[in-house]
Design a protein around this nucleic acid. Structure first.
Length: 825
RNA sequence: GCCGGGAUGGCGGAAUUGGCAGACGCACCGGACUCAAAAUCCGGCGCCCGCAAGGGCGUGGGGGUUCAAGUCCCCCUCCCGGCACCA
């Protein structure tokens, strides 16, 4: 027997697996149930780091387990190959982004192969391939025709460094998610997808995901959508007759309104200021805010300027003063709010600063609230007072009644407001899918004909950033005839956000050769939805929300028949090193290749899965590759030891099968472990599964030492190898085929079966407690009944000494595991 | 502030249903083998008292339910994540 040498066996099996085509998904019905296991596809920026090793190692385990359990598994891989880093490389080093990307893909593919990933390589594609982005463009056209893709002038987040707009989602703390540059506001005409049209469904359909997605991710999506229910109420401006709606979640406080506030950017503000004679100070305020960076706005300021006009409260006809104040945001609700200082903290502070009346209309039941004494707004429940027809009604229960009354009176209506915005998909960059639109002076925005797709990216672009896509400088690209009238037109030069590419790639895997549609109906019918999706928590919102949105849009277009793309979602934790995430751009990288050379891929995969539960973040410092490597050495030796033993006479095994000798002990350990590790695979508790297999390894070693017969030893060794195969595929395959002599691969199982009787221990340790404290442990038969347990417990001298002659009040028996004697103190 | 998730030895973590807390591993300590080292193997390892036998304490803190609580209930502290002048 040679010693365990992964650098020899790993490349060997990788080559054989490749040749045998084991990991190809079978499209035809072959009688096996189907399973679609997907990993979030990687962005090919340089080589992989150990963060990838963790993510993809975890993602590789379930499909392998499913194969062994008899499933026909689709486990594809591809590349999210458009995006800024390729273009930045082009700018900084003059390389062609296509070449740069394809070179990185080659490198990553090699590394994946050295990890022994069970991908179906026959289905791989790159999103930057014209055969792929052609269909990204096609999907854009479908959304455009459905009115879900549109262009508007909007304030956009502009990153001065990357020279492009960013989606709201890509701005973190006022900075560019990618390069950390302070983002500025710019008004630009941009393309959007109408995600808000699906806000309710994105929220309500999460019901379908309960149980399959973590509470954490569901909560993040819920927060992101940010639905709040309330009412829209119209106020009239007394001096001009303008009708201004406000959104409120507290229509029950309408009788407490004492002022009215506009956001500085509100379109009516300029005109109202003219009317009120306050045009000059208001203009000054607007200009000052316009110049200020979003991040410089004082979050706590309650400054504001009286407009000199008044609003009429529709519920009581009162005239109240109007203000303009930066604490009211144009982006949320209607850009104007009713001021209820008694019951809203911000309004309370504003009223204090500007000497406005505080009128209490919700009174707590236990005490009187005196406006003069208040130090903060009263935002709790109470009884409505000074509220006309609603006096004496309990709030907030009364909110629905107030809304009904408003509707009846024609003064307002139930309304819902969302935090979610429409998805800004325009990017002024060239390494992305061109938006297939032609601007025509006479026809407007004209979609490119489907048969003319793809709109190809030219290969000879000048990448110097100058605020427009490099495509805009490429005359041959830009100048084009209008597809509608044939007159001269200009091609749209924005490209699509790369999140568009990744919002449908999982559909393409089901039929990557499809020529007439982005995905074939049969392929999607066959494989979708994804049964198990593995990826980082960092994509908990954006990617998953966009993919969910797109699938719902496709559902409405009749292109798919399911509402949610990912049935179960596994968000593996991130690998942290010296307090930070791995990131090539920040120089925090542990290269996997030297680790593979030293320890082998199996050890690295196991080490990461063993170090923590899959969903927890993992500190690289706590990962002990040496520890699991040592274990694999033990497995290697003991399996070879078992395999090399001459067959013992069956009688020898049989004689050992009875009683409680080492043979019996081994047998029960094997069956118990099969049962438990099977459950661990089902619940992706790989750290626990590995620890159980370590224990089983010791059991087998002990049994070898105790002279247990070959039949049982072999059953144990084969079970051990099978159970570890999904996590350590190379060593398992080597031991299965070479040491144990199976002609067939271990990849397709069979998964070991357990005998329920054997999985239960024959003897158990019964705990005897006195007043809840463990006083003795007695070995009893697993079948011991209540009476036997009671008798044995009372017979224990150790227990007797703790009873000390005191009377026994109660005897609790949970046969056969526990007896608790309750005595008086 | 609101929402979600957590807190278990020196460290990572285990404990499927309320029933032996600390599996498994790392680190550390001791031993075997060795000229020596590496590798490998054996043993120890929650805290306190004790030579030991043994006993007491112990799952962030406080209360409660229960024969029995890491697990259930109430209150609190802290940590992580999301959202946040969101009307």
């Amino acid at each position: 027997m040679d010693s365990y040498n992964p650098s020899e066996i790993e490349p060997k099996w990788q080559a054989i697996w490749d040749k045998e085509g084991l990991y190809r998904a079978v499209d035809e019905d072959d009688g096996r149930p189907r399973f679609y296991a997907l990993d979030m596809f990687p962005y090919p920026s340089g080589d992989l780091h150990v963060g990838h090793a963790e993510a993809f190692g975890i993602g590789d385990t379930l499909p392998r387990y499913k194969w062994m359990r008899g499933y026909n598994v689709l486990h594809p891989i591809g590349w999210d190959a458009f995006g800024l880093p390729a273009e930045n490389a082009a700018i900084e080093r003059g390389v062609n982004p296509r070449q740069w990307t394809y070179q990185n893909i080659d490198e990553q593919r090699q590394t994946f192969k050295r990890y022994g990933m069970s991908f179906d390589w026959s289905r791989q594609f790159n999103t930057c391939d014209p055969e792929y982005y052609r269909w990204t463009q096609w999907l854009f056209l479908q959304l455009f025709r459905a009115g879900l893709a549109y262009r508007k002038l909007a304030p956009a987040n502009w990153c001065p460094k990357d020279q492009t707009v960013l989606a709201n989602e890509q701005v973190v703390n006022g900075r560019c998610e990618r390069c950390d540059t302070l983002v500025v506001r710019r008004d630009l005409t941009q393309w959007f997808f109408k995600t808000t049209a699906y806000a309710d469904r994105l929220l309500d359909d999460m019901e379908l995901l309960e149980g399959g997605w973590s509470e954490r991710v569901l909560a993040m999506q819920r927060n992101w959508i940010g639905r709040s229910n309330g009412a829209e109420v119209e106020f009239e401006i007394a001096e001009t007759g303008d009708r201004v709606p406000v959104f409120t979640t507290r229509p029950d406080t309408l009788w407490g309104v004492t002022f009215f506030v506009f956001a500085p950017e509100h379109p009516l503000v300029g005109r109202l200021a003219e009317t009120g004679g306050t045009a000059e100070p208001v203009k000054d305020l607007q200009d000052r805010l316009q110049r200020a960076d979003a991040s410089e706005r004082d979050g706590d300021s309650r400054e504001g300027i009286a407009l000199g006009v008044h609003a009429v409260n529709p519920v009581n006809g009162e005239k109240i003063p109007c203000f303009v104040a930066p604490y009211v945001l144009m982006e949320y609700g209607t850009g104007a709010v009713m001021g209820v200082p008694a019951h809203d903290q911000r309004d309370f502070e504003f009223a204090g600063q500007h000497g406005l009346e505080i009128r209490v209309v919700i009174q707590p039941e236990s005490r009187e609230v005196d406006p003069g004494e208040m130090t903060e707004a009263f935002a709790h429940e109470g009884v409505m007072v000074r509220s006309g027809p609603f006096d004496g009604t309990r709030s907030p229960d009364s909110i629905q009644a107030v809304i009904a009354w408003l509707e009846e009176q024609g003064k307002g209506r139930a309304a819902t407001s969302y935090r979610l915005w429409d998805w800004l998909i325009s990017r002024q960059r060239a390494w992305g899918a061109p938006i297939p639109i032609v601007h025509c002076p006479s026809c407007g925005e004209v979609p490119v004909a489907e048969e003319d797709l793809p709109v190809l990216l030219p290969d000879d672009l000048d990448f110097t950033p100058h605020g427009q896509s490099p495509l805009a400088k490429h005359e041959a690209f830009v100048n084009v005839d209008c597809p509608s009238c044939g007159g001269p037109g200009r091609r749209e030069t924005d490209t699509m956000d790369t999140f568009v590419d990744s919002s449908w790639y999982f559909l393409r895997y089901t039929s990557p050769e499809e020529q007439s549609l982005p995905f074939s109906p049969q392929g999607v019918e066959r494989w979708m939805p994804v049964d198990h999706y593995t990826g980082g928590i960092n994509h908990a919102i954006l990617h998953l929300l966009y993919a969910r949105f797109l699938v719902k849009a496709l559902y409405d277009l009749g292109l798919v028949k399911f509402l949610e793309p990912f049935t179960t979602l596994l968000n593996q934790g991130m690998v942290i090193w010296e307090g930070r995430m791995f990131s090539k751009s920040r120089g925090v990288v542990v290269e996997p290749s030297p680790l593979i050379e030293r320890w082998g891929a199996d050890s690295i995969r196991l080490a990461m899965m063993f170090a923590a539960p899959v969903e927890d973040d993992l500190d690289w410092a706590t990962v002990s590759v040496a520890g699991v490597h040592k274990w694999l050495g033990r497995v290697w030796r003991v399996v070879h030891e078992v395999a090399s033993r001459p067959a013992s006479p069956a009688a020898a095994d049989e004689s050992l099968e009875h009683g409680s000798g080492p043979a019996e002990r081994l047998r029960r350990a094997v069956h118990r472990t099969i049962k438990e590790v099977t459950a661990d695979h089902e619940r992706v508790a790989y750290n626990v599964a590995i620890s159980r297999l370590m224990v089983l390894t010791s059991e087998v070693q002990d049994a070898v030492g105790a002279g247990v017969g070959t039949v049982l030893l072999r059953e144990a060794a084969e079970s051990l190898v099978s159970l570890m195969a999904p996590m350590a595929p190379h060593v398992a395959e080597e031991l299965w085929r070479e040491a144990l002599g199976h002609p067939e691969t271990v990849v397709f199982g069979p998964w070991p079966q357990w005998d329920e009787d054997l999985a239960r221990d024959e003897e158990v340790t019964m705990v005897v407690q006195v007043n809840g404290k463990v006083r003795d442990r007695i070995t009893v038969g697993a079948a011991a009944d209540e009476e036997e347990c009671r008798t044995r417990a009372l017979a224990s001298p150790r227990v007797q000494s703790f009873l000390a002659g005191r009377g026994i009040d109660q005897v609790i028996v949970r046969a056969p595991k526990l007896v608790n004697l309750v005595v008086r103190p």
